[in-house]
Simulated scan of single mutants.
Amino acid sequence: MSAGTVYGVGLGPGDPDLLSVRADRLVRGAKHVAFFRKAGRAGQARQIVNGMLADSAIEFPMEYPVTTEIPLSDPRYNEVLSNFYADCTDHVRDLAEAGEDVIVLCEGDPFFYGSFMHLYTRLKPHVPVEVVPAITGMSGAWTATGAPITWGDDILTVLMGTLDEDTLAARMKDADALVVMKIGRNIDKVCRALHAAGKYEDAYLIEYATMPNQQVQKLCEAEGKITPYFSIIVVHGQGRRP
């Protein structure tokens, strides 16, 4: 029996209209559909494809055992997540080795800070794996501001809000154009770093980019606001132009 293929399908920033033609076709024709989600939640990737899956599709929610309950610096964090990804891989691999294709839904692009990468590296030596690229969440965010993120020779820096404050501030200071992801409870630290880098007043906060509940505002006007995890901060470059 030939092995099935595992497809890591990028869904883009959130608007189903922004799926690629190939992603749309794979999602609608899927027999086995896997997706990550926080326990007790529907899952952002799953919500993007609401109404697209066949009634007969068999769903496999992969629920994170931890998100913020254990600090990133705690050795247990990697241990718990590593075991989780191994278990998910075993399930998906069993399906593929039985000849079944499996669609793994991925927010944004699968190879851009996505959880699918942890399955990919474990599956690749054993079964066929294909990746369907997509529009990134940050692209949807800066487009929502109505202004280009880079001009001319601008250097774009992408940072995670989970980094320590000193590292954030140093990298921000050197950036021409800036994207900060994984905001959520890191918002106060990110704001302090932006202040230290002299970029706070130029920063925009984009929540749920391209989704029905999208919000775009200057970061300085959102002072004290509780931001969702699916928030992105951008600072536009002002580089060379004709």
Rank of each mutant, 00 (worst) to 15 (best):
F112I: 12
S20H: 03
G237V: 05
H32S: 14
A177N: 08
A203T: 01
I232C: 10
D109N: 03
A193G: 00
N213F: 14
P61A: 07
H195A: 09
R171S: 09
S115H: 10
A196H: 11
I149V: 02
K31R: 15
E221W: 08
M172C: 07
I48N: 04
P125A: 05
L159R: 00
M1D: 09
F35T: 11
R28W: 03
K31Q: 15
A86S: 12
R93S: 06
L18K: 06
R192E: 05
N78F: 10
R122L: 07
S2L: 13
D55S: 12
A45W: 08
M52N: 04
L178I: 00
G146L: 07
L168F: 01
P212T: 11
L26Y: 11
D174P: 05
H32F: 15
I70V: 15
Y120G: 02
E100M: 09
F112P: 01
V6Q: 04
A45H: 14
D15M: 05
E130W: 09
R241S: 15
R241I: 15
Y7M: 04
E100G: 07
L19Q: 05
F116E: 10
P65C: 06
T67K: 09
G184F: 01
P16V: 12
I233W: 00
R76W: 06
P148F: 03
D55K: 13
P228A: 04
A144T: 10
E100P: 07
T121G: 06
E221G: 08
S2P: 14
Y204K: 06
E221D: 15
D154A: 08
P71M: 06
N50W: 03
V102C: 09
D90N: 14
D24A: 12
R28C: 01
R46H: 14
L26F: 07
G10P: 07
G198L: 10
R192C: 07
L194F: 03
R122H: 00
D166C: 00
A98K: 13
C106G: 04
Q215R: 15
M62S: 03
T89S: 15
D154H: 00
P16C: 05
L53A: 10
C106A: 13
S115D: 03
L194S: 01
L219P: 06
G51P: 13
H118N: 12
D174E: 14
A147S: 10
E100Y: 08
V27E: 09
D154E: 04
Y204A: 06
A34D: 07
A144N: 02
D153C: 06
P61Y: 11
Y208H: 15
L123R: 04
G10F: 05
P242N: 10
F111W: 13
S82M: 12
N186T: 07
A209I: 08
M62V: 13
L194K: 02
Q214W: 14
